[in-house]
Each structure stands twice: as C-alpha cells, then as structure tokens.
Design a protein around this nucleic acid. Structure first.
Lengths: 339, 339
DNA sequence: CTGAAAGCGCTTACAG
DNA sequence: CTGAAAGCGCTTACAG
C-alpha cells in the first residue's frame, strides 16, 4: 500500500503533494464550498495517496460546532433506556451528529458530568432519567448549549423537558382496572423521589378513591426490580388481599405475575389482575401477555430532536407531555359493560 | 451571576483577568504540571468568574489524545448488546475516557463509519457484532488507532478480537442435553453467516452425532427473534418431534418455551427440554427459568480494556476466547447418573 | 475559483 | 516556577 505512513497526514502535506494551497484541501473536503471539480480531484488523489482523513476537531474549534450530542444516562437506569438510547442514536446520526455517552455512577456526579460534557464543546446535552442543578443548567444555556431532560421532569429547572404524561397514564391504568371490576386495588411503586412515579401513583389513587373510596386502594414500594415486584406482591396478597395490582414498571409487574402464579398458585387475571408501565419486550411474550401503558419512544425523540437545535435556545423552557397509550393484553379482566 | 456572558471565555480572557500568562492557565488546568498553588488559585478565581471551561478539543489537537473511544454497534444488534455497552461505557469512563457511539444501519456502512470515527481522532475503536474490511483495519492501525472486534470473530482480519468460546459453549450445551437423556436433539440457529452461530451449532452437532448418531440431530433457522423461535419450534415439533431443543440465543429459547407450553400444551422439560445462550434477564424469571450458556461480559470487557491501550498496537493481533459458563435452571432435565 | 495570511483555543519546549 | 513564542490542524474573510 503506497503512502502508508506511521503517522497521520495533515492538510499541509496533502496540499504540497497535490501542488495546491492548504485552503484548497479544506474546500475540497467541505461540501458546497466553491472549488472546481478538477482542483478537488487533485486534492482527493493526494489525500488517497497519503491516507489523509480530515481532522474534525481542528475544524470544530473554528466552526464552533462539534457534531457531538452528549447523552447522560445514569448507570443504574432501568433497561427501558436501552431502547431510548438506540432510538436517540439513530435519529442523531440521521442529522449528521454522533452521541457521546456519559453514565455517571451516582447523582453526586451529575453536575460534574455536565461540566465534563461542556469541555468537549458538545452541540447539545440530553439528560435521561436524572436531575441537574439550576446552576449547571444556566451555565450550559449561557454557553449556548441546549439542554433537554427526557423521561423525567424537574419542576423549576430552566431547561426543556419531554416525557410521558404520567397523570394521564395513571388515569388510564386505573380506568382499565376499574372497568374490569376492581374492588381492591394495590399499587406497587418505585422510589418515591421520582416525579413520574409520584404522578402515576397519585393519578391512580385519585381515580380509584373517587370511584371506590379511599379504603379500596393501597400503595407499597417495589424497588423497581423483578424481585422487588415479586416480594411486594407476596406481602400484599397475604396482608391486604387486592383483586388488582398496578405496578409502576413492567419489570415489577412480571415479578408480580410470577408471585401470583408460581408462588401463590393463583390465577391472573381471575384472582388477581395485574398491569404495568413501559411495554418492555418480555411483556408481550406469551407467558406474561401483560396489559401495560406505554409512551411512544418515537414521539419523545421527535420532540427531542427539535429541542436540541440551536433555535431552541431562543424560547423559554418548554415542557412537553406525550400522551400514554394502553396495550390491552390478557393479564387484566375484560371490561364489563356496566362501567 | 457575575461574569455571565453570552459566549464562551477562552484561556486568554482568563489569563488577562487573573493577571497571568496564558501558559499559567493551561498549567492550572493540567493536573501534575509545575505551578504554585497560589498562581493556580488566581487562575481558578478568574475562571469561575468567567464560567471558563477548558476546550478539550484544542488540547487534543496538540496532545494527540482525545480521550474518546469509538464504539460501533449495528442498528439491528440484539438486545444483549445493551448490557455490553453499559459495561463498556462504565469501564471506559473508569479510565477517564468517553464512548462515542456509532450505529450504522447496514453492513454497507461499516467501512464508511470507520472513516467517520477516524475523523474524530478517536483513541481507539471497538467493533461489536460487525465486520470491517482489511483495508480499513489497516488504515486505522496505520494511524496508530487500536481496533478490537468483540463478540464476533473475523478470521484473517488484522485486529484484536475478544469473544466467548463458541465451540466450548456448544459442547457444554450438548452435554447438558445428552446427560439429561436427549435422544432427538434440534438446534434453532441464527443467520448462518455469523461465525459464532456457526461454531456453536457445529459443536453441538459434532458432540451429539458422536453420541447418538447423525440422525438424532437436526437444525433449523430461527431468525434470532422471539417469534422466530416460537414458530420454528411449532414446525419442529410437528415435523420432527425432538425431545430436546437448543436455541442459539435466549430470546429464541423463550419463544420456543412458549410454543411448547402455550401453543402445544406440552411440558418443559418433560416433553421437550429447552435451553439457550446469553443469559438475558428474562431467562431468570420464574415463568421461564431457562437453562442457558453465558459468557461473562465482565471478562470480555476486561480484555477489551487491555487491547484498546496504545501498547496493544505493538503486538500481533490476538484472538481471545472466553470460556462459557452454564447456568442450570429447570427448563432442562436433571442429568441421569448414567451419563 | 484560488491562495496568502490571520486566527480558532490550546500546549510545550525554551529561556529566565 | 513563570512567560513569550512557536506551533497543533484547520477555516475563513480578504484580495486577486
């Protein structure tokens, strides 16, 4: 292979070999710039010869655009974020940018992580399932870096946010259980400090108490895991005897179903109806066939893509709520005509 | 907030405000460089005032180190790669670098993607579940960028590779079925162009034919999906009546289990024993409790971290195979003492 | 269209 | 330890 060198050729070397100016090689590699095809071809020939690859970093310093979008997903985020990340990556690449990943270990590191992102001069910052300080948010905005929080909402934070409509999703879930004839409804929640979880459970409580009275509904913590949902269900059925359980995530709901069927030898939905939130792949498998509430990932990312544009810096923070959809499967009772 | 500016302060402005040289601000932000604490503090005070954040890109041009590791995962990669990516990201951050993600749509784009990575001057390139041309591999190496392929192996490609030991994993799977008393064993495979899949099925075939004869084993395509595993199983049980099925991925195995129990009303493992590969989370759920073969992700990433170091450029391509482990659960028959 | 020159934000020998 | 100066690889007005 001719031109194979141990180092990396730069535009000066390419220019020299091609017998043109360094500005010419810059123009040859900048689509849409004014250069004759003949000149460009001379540059490309020399570039091939030298295995030249333009240095995007040097370009970025001048253009003030890195084509990099930083995405922060905390290390302990639930599996649902894998899909979200895949979708974001695909869409971001669709507009000619790349995703730079940051996965801080704990919330103490979130602000530090933001700082780190800024050092890379990223064009935009996406925060999934995490909160940041107003101070850092303002620092980013002051540097003209759009910041958008997805999936979670932090009231008062001066950044854009996109997420599922948790209240509406909660109401939807309650309505399905109530129309199926629920008389005693339990909720298995996640950590109480998450706004989304709080809003979902609040909406379910409100809806259910309004119809059946406050005594007909209860709430326990399920720790966001399969095992958490399973053991919470065991305790619940023993101590409170619900006829319906809404889990705030599908992973917990799968644990709940297994508790009811495998551990307690009861039937779903006849003895206990169960539903979840998220619509993860396993929920559709025949062994579970879980009724669930989902927020279309595509729509979240649609809005996200708008909000990471520079133009988004001009508007006041917007807070977008995507309506949830219900996926009816067989883990809940068929609605009676009565309701 | 004082010092809030619409733009971004640079080291010159910080130097001026602090009343020091621009070299001093560079040193203040470079751990380990020779600067008195007093001088550094003056710099930091000015930096705070101006919301200064060092520009890593400019630094990278000079140091020739970007602290960025490119990771390529094709868009259609199976869910297993989510875990792998999470682990890689965590470990890469552990050594002070960040992951820049690339998810090309089709294999036509793989080489183009490599080129793109090089433009970002990444410190190393990780290719998961994909192949690249020798030409591009050599181009990267010529630029002193380590390339390592994980999970998949491409014979003859001059790059490092780390993956599970597919032959040994296949033998392990066959042994479990045989020791459980298998007499007619079916394999549900993925796309035949994947070396890993080929090696697994070959090992299973060899082992089984050696014990039971070539007629006792068959092989069908399952398309790598839950639905694919399910429909392949339906056809298999109808046409060939296996007493044991090994699926080359867990996702297909879950589909196979549901086909046997839900669609065919047969028992697992009494009527048909089933096992898979990967040990995805759902395999551990009580409804499945799938026996499976797993390759420890941690060990793969351990080796990966070594191979993306600059020192790895000095050695000839190494090809590391991590031994697979078996996770015995209840979807397979208990081994009889006889075997 | 093309090139010489200035400049992006930083680091690093080189003197002191 | 500290600073003036050269330089990393590139882009972009500015003339021609």
């Amino acid at each position: 292979m001719t031109g194979r060198r141990s180092g990396r050729a730069n535009s000066t070397e390419v220019a020299r070999l091609a017998g043109v100016s360094i500005a010419a090689v810059s123009r040859a590699f900048t689509p849409g710039s004014s250069i004759t095809p003949q000149l460009a071809e001379k540059v490309f020939a020399a570039a091939r010869e030298l295995n030249y690859v333009p240095n995007t970093l040097a370009r970025s310093i001048i253009t003030r655009e890195t084509k990099i979008v930083a995405v922060m997903i905390p290390r302990d985020a639930n599996p649902r974020y894998a899909d979200l990340l895949a979708e974001i990556t695909a869409r971001v690449e669709g507009v000619g940018k790349q995703v730079l990943l940051f996965s801080p270990e704990s919330s103490d590191d979130f602000d530090r992580t933001l700082q780190h992102m800024l050092q890379f001069q990223v064009d935009a910052i996406v925060i999934a399932a995490a909160t940041i300080s107003s101070r850092m948010a303002e620092l980013c905005l002051g540097r003209n870096v759009p910041v958008v929080v997805i999936v979670r909402h932090v009231p008062g934070l001066p950044v854009h946010s996109v997420r599922g409509d948790a209240h509406q999703g909660g109401r939807l879930a309650a309505d399905i259980m109530l129309s199926g004839g629920a008389k005693r409804l339990a909720i298995i929640t996640g950590p109480p400090d998450l706004t989304t979880m709080l809003q979902r459970s609040q909406a379910i409580m409100d809806r259910t108490s309004a119809t059946l009275g406050a005594d007909a509904v209860t709430m326990v913590e399920g720790g966001m895991s399969y095992e958490g949902g399973r053991s919470a269900t065991l305790a619940l059925v023993r101590d409170w005897k619900p006829d319906s359980i809404i889990c705030l995530t599908d992973v917990m709901a799968l644990g709940a179903m297994d508790a009811v069927r495998h551990d307690l030898k009861l039937r779903v939905p006849e003895d206990v109806a169960i539903m979840g939130f998220d619509d993860i792949p396993a929920s559709a498998y025949a062994s579970y066939d879980l009724t669930t509430i989902r927020t279309p990932v595509t729509e979240i990312v649609d809005h996200l893509m708008d909000l990471i544009k520079p133009a988004a810096l001009l508007s006041d923070p917007v807070s977008i709520e995507i309506p949830a959809e219900v996926v009816i499967r067989s883990s809940t009772r068929i609605p009676s005509a009565a309701v």
